[in-house]
Amino acid sequence: MTRSFEQYLRPGVKATAFCPGCGHGILLHGILRAVDELGLDREKLLFVSGIGCAAWIPSPHILADTLHTLHGRAVAYATGAKLANPALTVIVVSGDGDLVSIGGNHLVHAARRGVDLTVICANNEIYGMTGGQAGPTTPVGAISATTPRGNPYPTFDLVKLVLGAGAAYVARYPVTQPRPMTDAIKKAIRTPGFAFVDVASPCPTQFGRRNRFEDVGALYDRTHDLVMPREEAAMRPPSELAGRLVVGEWTPEDLRLGAGIAHDGPGPGGPPC
């Protein structure tokens, strides 16, 4: 991490607890860069997270107010804090399991209410912390601790889900595209109302190993290869989009046109191998 960002790290926190090659560290860097470039008042900055490896991205690392809550409930805690003190800039950072599985109800309702929150989903398509169980973001066919013969169920497309629920701004980028990812986080923070960023963040330990990515590099190559910009996806038939990581930005305008959400495949991840 760039040395100038050390001012954003909590003193005494020497190293992250993340495994080597975990995407969550890259996302942490992107969030700090976004905060720095926006010149946000750190006294009024509140990070809220749930439970999971991803929930450790802000807590304890970031030197700001941080609220590490319960599994699935970060968005509800954040809603209470934001409504009680609207002067706070409230950013939720949590995992796909946390935000979408156990916490899915809070996510869609906060989007519907239009609470002025930024929610960043560190999406590794798995429950990383607890040993690699499948969740609603696990690709069809993927091997996990609870789908030893391959996941039989389709995934949520988080862009469609959250945009459909009423979000003002939604974006998706992987940590392998740090610049657009960071720009999307900045836009999300500046958006008045509910904003959501789905960040593909590889988990080599729980997802990669089980799905036979020999090393971290191979897993990052997969993420990189699955990326398709939404503009390109708009011109492809749905059959070619299954499992692709369609990246870009979306607003409610896209819903009105009925054309913006590009793919109808089984979610962003798709069969891994």
């Binding site: 509800a76 805690y77 954040a78 809603t79 209470g80 409504l83 706070l88």
Partner: peptide
Amino acid sequence: VFVQMEDEIASISAVIGASWTGAKA
């Protein structure tokens, strides 16, 4: 501030979040 949350888990969660901003909740 009054807010009707989506369920009781969300209600107590929002109460705790609000309390940490200094509000009686």
